[in-house]
Amino acid sequence: MLLCDEVQLLRKLPYFAEVDTCKLKLLAFASERVTFKAGQRLFTQGDAGDSAYFILSGSVEFLVSTPDGPVKVSERGPNSIVGDISLLCDGPRSSTVQAAGVVEALKINKDYLFRIMDDCPGMTMKMTRAIAERLRLTSSELDQVRALQKA
């Protein structure tokens, strides 16, 4: 996959929808291409986060550790970004992410991402909106779960 294809894919993310092509290209260029084999971990729950991964191909599983061992909570396919939350709020990783099959991803470094955000004022707003959307979805899911538990 070439640099320009990566840029095309990045653009499909709501985060980057309105960012200059130049800047996206810069972000893609500054990011490293990594490959994971099935079962290899992108990151582990509790680790400090220093990068996010943009999945180019393959799919990844989200695992959360419970007293009975890790439990798979969700799965994400190509053209999605994982690990972005702990990037933005400096906390530890909230779950473990591992490759379901062969996964190709773009490793986006936290410092580089921040630099590019600094240069694009509009981007911060976009990201905030995207995250708020995620938060809305998550809380409505949580509410449903709670309602189910009570019922």
């Binding site: 640099l3 130049c22 290209k25 810069l26 260029f29 500054a30 580089y112 630099r115 240069d119």
Partner: peptide, 20 residues
């Protein structure tokens, strides 16, 4: 051509020079 396109707009003291 590609490098100029990617880095051309950055200020001279940008950390990406030398780093990436």
């Amino acid at each position: 051509r590609n490098l100029v396109e990617i880095f051309g707009g950055l200020p001279a003291d940008h950390p990406f020079f030398r780093q990436v």
